[in-house]
C-alpha cells in the first residue's frame, strides 16, 4: 500500500482508539457517579459528552474522505465500513453514559439502597459492561478476532441480570419499600436498560470487527 494512504489509515484507527478510551472513561465515571450518587462526577460526564460527539463527526468525515479519495476494496473497504459502524456504536454508548449521569444529577435520592444494589447485581452488571468494553478495545488494537469472539458470551450475563432486575424492581415498587419510590424504580430500570443496550452495542462492535478481519457476517446469527 502507498505509504501516505497507510499513514491515513493508521491515523483513523488511532482516532477510533482515542474515542474508545474516552467512551470507556465516560462509562466508568457514569458508573462511579451512579453507585456513589456523586452529582459532581455526573456533571463531568455530561460536560465530556460533546467530546464523544466531536470524535464521531471527525472520524466519520475522515472515513468519508478515505473512501472517496482512495477507493478501498476488500479488507481495506471492510475496515473502513467496520470503523464507521463502531464509531456509531461508541457514540451511542457515550449517550448512555450521559443518560446515567443525568439520572444521578436530577434525582432527589441521596444514595442507592444498598440492598437493592446487591439484589439487582448492579455492580456486577457494570463490571461486566466495562470488561466487555475493555476487551473490545484490546481486540481492536491488536486486531484479534479470537478475542472479539469472547464478547458474545459475556453479553449473555448482562441480558440475564437485566431480566432479573425487572422482577426485583417490580417487587420493590409493589411493596413500597421506604426510600425506594416507584419513580426511582422506573428510573433505575432505565439505567439497567441503558447498560443492557451498551452490551448490545459492544456486541455489534465485535461483529463489525470480525467482519473486517475474517469477512464473516455474524449479524442476526447465533454466535455460540
Amino acid at each position: 500500500m502507498v505509504k501516505f494512504i497507510e499513514i491515513e489509515r493508521s491515523q483513523i484507527k488511532e482516532d477510533v482508539n482515542d474515542m474508545f478510551a474516552l467512551v470507556i472513561k465516560q462509562i466508568e465515571q457514569a458508573s462511579t457517579a451512579l453507585l456513589s450518587m456523586d452529582k459532581g462526577i455526573a456533571s463531568q460526564v455530561i460536560v465530556f459528552e460533546h467530546k464523544v460527539n466531536s470524535f464521531e463527526l471527525k472520524i466519520t468525515k475522515e472515513i468519508e474522505d478515505y473512501i472517496a479519495l482512495y477507493n478501498p476494496v476488500a479488507i481495506d473497504l471492510r475496515f473502513m465500513l467496520s470503523l464507521l459502524q463502531m464509531t456509531m456504536d461508541l457514540e451511542r454508548i457515550g449517550d448512555y453514559a450521559r443518560s446515567m449521569a443525568r439520572f444521578v444529577k436530577e434525582t432527589e435520592m441521596k444514595e442507592l439502597n444498598p440492598e437493592l444494589v446487591e439484589k439487582t447485581q448492579l455492580k456486577k452488571m457494570i463490571q461486566q459492561v466495562l470488561a466487555m468494553l475493555k476487551t473490545m478495545q484490546v481486540a481492536f488494537t491488536e486486531e484479534n478476532a479470537e478475542l472479539a469472539h469472547t464478547i458474545f458470551d459475556k453479553d449473555d450475563l448482562i441480558d440475564h441480570i437485566r431480566t432479573l432486575s425487572t422482577d426485583i424492581l417490580a417487587d420493590y415498587m409493589v411493596n413500597q419499600i421506604p426510600d425506594t419510590s416507584a419513580k426511582i424504580c422506573l428510573q433505575l430500570q432505565d439505567v439497567f436498560r441503558k447498560l443492557e443496550r451498551t452490551g448490545d452495542h459492544i456486541t455489534n462492535m465485535a461483529e463489525e470487527f470480525i467482519f473486517y478481519l475474517d469477512a464473516k457476517v455474524l449479524k442476526h446469527q447465533k454466535k455460540g
Binding site: M1, V73, A74, I75, D76
Partner: peptide, 8 residues
C-alpha cells in the same frame, strides 16, 4: 489477489 487490488 488481495495484496494486488489493495495496492500492497
Amino acid at each position: 489477489t488481495q495484496n494486488y487490488i489493495t495496492g500492497r
